[in-house]
Simulated assay, not measured.
Amino acid sequence: MSTAFVVRSLDEVRFWSRIMKEHSLFLRLGFRAEDKQLINEANHFYSTFEAIESRANGMNAGADPQTIQRFNVEVHSAVTQIWAFKRKVLGLILHCQLPGANNYPLLVDHTSREAFYFRNRLEELNTGRLDPLPDAIINENVFFLRIMADHAKFIGHLLDPSERKLVDQAREFSEDFDKLVFQAIDLESMRPQSQTPPLLDQFLDQNRVSVQSLRDFKKTARDLIEACRIKSIIHPLLADHVYREAERFLHIIDRFEAALTGKE
């Protein structure tokens, strides 16, 4: 373990613990008033990840790697618990035991996939078993492209139906990213033969263009929502949440591009 391990761990925990904290809030807002136990559980997870985020922000690159390793184990336990909570909520919704609640099944599944991703990343960091670059490029893009496709669908369904142009734009992004997801899955099934630098470089370039466009759309939507200039039931924090995840994906694409071309 090294300084790089500390820096990477803190970066992952800072970003994803905030995401988990916000998931707790969004799920709570979608529960019915009578769902007191679920609301209490969501509040518990909000406090848990708020504390984790605060602890991570108080650490720096000079922290003892073994301390960070133990911290990762603690965070892994909390992430496992919120993942189980999200899957429980999904089961209740799909078995029609929460009629009238406002959490889409796909949204709950979406948040559980992000928790599973975070948990796996912590395991990879602590064991030192990170994917080789070609595998990492494909795996990360398959994951994040689906996340972006989901975001476009959520935006389209949470905008007021009278916002016809924005709804159409969201639907177009959804269709675009669905296609990119399937292209990524095709590349995945063709590996290792598909893992040539030219193919992977083109793969990253194509995805970057679409993610930048979606990121800009999210930023515009976020700014309009915060200024109360469009009609929707999108919480301003949710608008910022999906924008930050697009920014995260772009950062990952750029990092892969630098490693692939030897510029890093």
Results as ranks from 00 to 15, higher is better:
residue 217 F to K: 01
residue 17 S to F: 08
residue 222 R to T: 12
residue 5 F to Y: 15
residue 246 A to T: 09
residue 35 D to K: 05
residue 158 L to D: 01
residue 20 M to V: 00
residue 213 S to R: 15
residue 14 R to T: 09
residue 77 S to Y: 06
residue 190 M to Q: 15
residue 258 A to E: 09
residue 21 K to V: 02
residue 47 S to W: 01
residue 228 C to A: 15
residue 135 D to M: 04
residue 180 L to F: 08
residue 134 P to M: 07
residue 136 A to I: 02
residue 238 L to W: 10
residue 51 A to Q: 14
residue 196 T to P: 08
residue 139 N to H: 14
residue 185 I to N: 08
residue 83 W to S: 05
residue 87 R to F: 03
residue 49 F to N: 06
residue 72 N to D: 10
residue 101 A to W: 07
residue 52 I to T: 10
residue 210 S to G: 11
residue 210 S to K: 09
residue 94 L to K: 12
residue 26 F to D: 06
residue 206 Q to A: 09
residue 127 T to K: 11
residue 244 R to H: 08
residue 218 K to Q: 05
residue 216 D to Q: 10
residue 39 I to G: 03
residue 72 N to V: 01
residue 160 D to T: 14
residue 147 I to V: 15
residue 56 A to M: 09
residue 28 R to C: 12
residue 220 T to M: 11
residue 52 I to E: 00
residue 156 G to Q: 03
residue 7 V to K: 07
residue 109 D to A: 03
residue 169 Q to Y: 11
residue 62 G to F: 10
residue 148 M to I: 11
residue 36 K to E: 11
residue 186 D to F: 08
residue 209 V to P: 00
residue 7 V to Q: 06
residue 30 G to L: 06
residue 253 I to L: 10
residue 185 I to T: 12
residue 227 A to W: 01
residue 83 W to G: 07
residue 245 E to W: 07
residue 56 A to G: 12
residue 138 I to K: 01
residue 67 T to C: 03
residue 70 R to I: 05
residue 156 G to P: 01
residue 240 D to T: 09
residue 172 E to V: 14
residue 259 A to H: 07
residue 79 V to K: 00
residue 249 F to V: 10
residue 27 L to P: 01
residue 2 S to M: 05
residue 110 H to D: 06
residue 139 N to R: 14
residue 174 S to H: 13
residue 23 H to Y: 05
residue 232 S to I: 02
residue 228 C to N: 14
residue 105 P to I: 04
residue 102 N to S: 13
residue 261 T to I: 00
residue 16 W to F: 08
residue 43 N to P: 02
residue 12 E to T: 05
residue 33 A to H: 06
residue 42 A to D: 03
residue 154 F to V: 12
residue 128 G to H: 08
residue 125 L to C: 04
residue 203 F to A: 04
residue 5 F to I: 03
residue 98 L to W: 13
residue 35 D to L: 09
residue 111 T to C: 00
residue 68 I to T: 10
residue 174 S to A: 13
residue 91 G to T: 12
residue 254 D to Q: 12
residue 56 A to Y: 09
residue 233 I to L: 15
residue 185 I to S: 06
residue 213 S to F: 09
residue 78 A to Q: 11
residue 74 E to T: 15
residue 49 F to S: 01
residue 188 E to M: 10
residue 73 V to L: 13
residue 140 E to P: 00
residue 135 D to K: 11
residue 76 H to N: 11
residue 167 V to E: 05
residue 81 Q to M: 05
residue 44 H to V: 05
residue 184 A to Y: 06
residue 44 H to T: 14
residue 212 Q to H: 06
residue 256 F to P: 02
residue 136 A to M: 09
residue 86 K to S: 04
residue 237 L to H: 05
residue 107 L to V: 04
residue 226 E to I: 11
residue 82 I to K: 02
residue 106 L to W: 01
residue 250 L to F: 11
residue 123 E to Q: 10
residue 7 V to N: 03
residue 199 L to M: 12
residue 166 L to N: 07
residue 33 A to L: 10
